[in-house]
Design a protein around this nucleic acid. Structure first.
Lengths: 109, 109
DNA sequence: CGATTCAATCGTAAATATACGATGAGAATT
DNA sequence: AATTCTCATCGTATATTTACGATTGAATCG
């Protein structure tokens, strides 16, 4: 995208944005859903499950790793991906916190 | 970004991705937080609160409107923005659903 | 009516994202 | 040692994002 002036926002706002980015693409949503379902950490399977090229899947996995939601263990000749429980809890907490407030108050009155 | 082959994913996966995009930029996070705090629907204030140009803020507001999270009411000479309660509940439900499962199972064993 | 105010939109530059084919690295198998 | 398998990375084309200044549109105020 453009530049995103991260410096001018709080660490928390930036972290929320990063965690949201993990879910901000349907392919990454699909990856996460798959990993949640198959508790065992599949990986090459993802390429078969997703209608995307292997390079593209690998790229999405890399992003999710960078955000911290996933980590991969080399288990030759395969690589095992799984959800990072710590970061998963963080996401749960952070999204819960921001989504919690009710907006029942009518506005523009 | 690139193209995003939305056709090959489910409607739900695409909707999750769209709702996540609302939170996938710190400026939009800040906008939403501000609207949650000031239950009254401020608007021009956002430009003062955010360290961004008016055109940029307007652009983020447009995106949030497109996703459905916000709607604006013209109230000359100002425009009142507020969170769309229906979509807010949808976001709550959809994120709650995907984040709910525990990942306590160790992986790559 | 003219000036002012608020917000949307236009036009644009630069950075980033998405996707894919091709290639490379590492390990096991033949 | 050569082949095969799995996955990461490179290179690249294209689209989208982000950001801003400038302009426009609508409406109030003097």
């Amino acid at each position: 995208m453009g530049v995103t002036k991260t410096q001018v926002f709080t660490d928390k706002q930036n972290r929320i944005a990063d965690l949201a980015k993990a879910l901000a693409h349907p392919a990454r949503v699909a990856i996460i859903q798959h990993l949640l379902k198959e508790k065992s950490c599949v990986c090459g399977d993802l390429v078969e499950v997703l209608p995307l090229a292997q390079a593209t899947v690998s790229q999405h996995l890399k992003e999710l790793k960078n955000i911290g939601i996933l980590h991969g263990e080399i288990n030759p000749p395969r690589v095992c991906y799984c959800i990072n429980e710590t970061v998963w809890q963080e996401a749960k907490a952070i999204f819960g916190e921001i989504l919690e407030p009710d907006v029942a108050v009518a506005c523009c009155n």
